[in-house]
Nucleic acid binder design. Sequence first.
DNA 1: CGCGGGTTTGATGATGCTCAAGCCCGGTGG
DNA 2: CCACCGGGCTTGAGCATCATCAAACCCGCG
Lengths: 199, 199
Amino acid sequence: MIRKDDSDKFAGINANVQKCGIFSDKELQFFNNLLQYKEVPKKTFLLHQGEICRFEAYVVKGCVRVYFIDAQGAELTLYFAVEDWWVSDIASFQEHKPSTLFIETLEDSELLLLTLETKELLLKEIPLFERVFRLMVQRNLANLQERLFQTVTTSAVEKYLNFLERYPNIPNRVAQHYIASYLGFTPEFLSKVRRRLYK
Amino acid sequence: MIRKDDSDKFAGINANVQKCGIFSDKELQFFNNLLQYKEVPKKTFLLHQGEICRFEAYVVKGCVRVYFIDAQGAELTLYFAVEDWWVSDIASFQEHKPSTLFIETLEDSELLLLTLETKELLLKEIPLFERVFRLMVQRNLANLQERLFQTVTTSAVEKYLNFLERYPNIPNRVAQHYIASYLGFTPEFLSKVRRRLYK
DNA sequence: CGCGGGTTTGATGATGCTCAAGCCCGGTGG
DNA sequence: CCACCGGGCTTGAGCATCATCAAACCCGCG
């Protein structure tokens, strides 16, 4: 495993948290020291449904998919996390409950991990980080509300166009059927939507 | 306006926040003093789309509906808040952004309001309240994720049954077409679903 | 060269919407 | 006391959307 030098590795995540509060270099260093760097090959599970989620991960590089599967095999992709995103099942992580989600890398990925212990330590030492995480969850919630609304009210073509607009770089990186799974379509139907669109 | 005595009025909300941390009587009193009590008749708007949300409200009594409407007139009810629920557009409230939501009472209601100022004061004085609000938002997020999944993957009948199970007291209190709006159905279709179910 | 995963295509059917009409019931005015 | 009105719920016919299933295609890789 080859480690890049620290400035490289932490540049992204530090910029990310600086958007939610102002931290000194010293505080950032304390934060960075709590993070665990990990390289993960593609197609590996970070979390299985039924397990308790033990991490909150920042994606330095790569692509991760978070999704549900129910007893009948029906699937929905909750989101794709690429560079500068966080991934976790927050509810499972914080409340030690079995998760309902699967989390899986789609590409070879580099992650920075917080555990419950290091997160608690961080919050205790630098309470302003409470704000960082609260804002993250709030934005998440607002986005999800909007998505639910779109899911219920808009047509298939609109959904697909909205997706392209919101996540322009994703379609180049992930297989089409994953995007179908995000949109709540069958792969066949997404294919037909695209055909209608590009002619 | 008739005011109940304080123990009545604050009993619910104090029990509510005690579930997320342990507060002394003195701290609770400080908290209660920041709350603004308000009685609101039914069919009044607490928030219009486009406005900035200025409150976070705890429902002491009554029923409030939170919903989206888009340019085409398509509507989705995000949730109903009855006794012991909180209502707000958190994103708008915290980030001073115009809201995309409508919030409207369906019954005469009694509310306890926090403003941005009183909330900041509260968090500054009793930092443990950060935890209360973070947990609230996280649960909210987890619920919404589950709901999105159900919305995409389950049949109409299942959706309705899930709703009845999750919110058994709501159908007695709100008109059927509001429930249709929650489920993403037309009122006509919900009626047909119910007929299939009860025979 | 052939295999296998992913994507496309088409035929068919189920699901849920639209529109139009009728019904139920509580409230209001004659 | 009755007639009427209006909002909400129900019913039905017809239609659009999207899933299912089966087959073919495409292309990178062993």
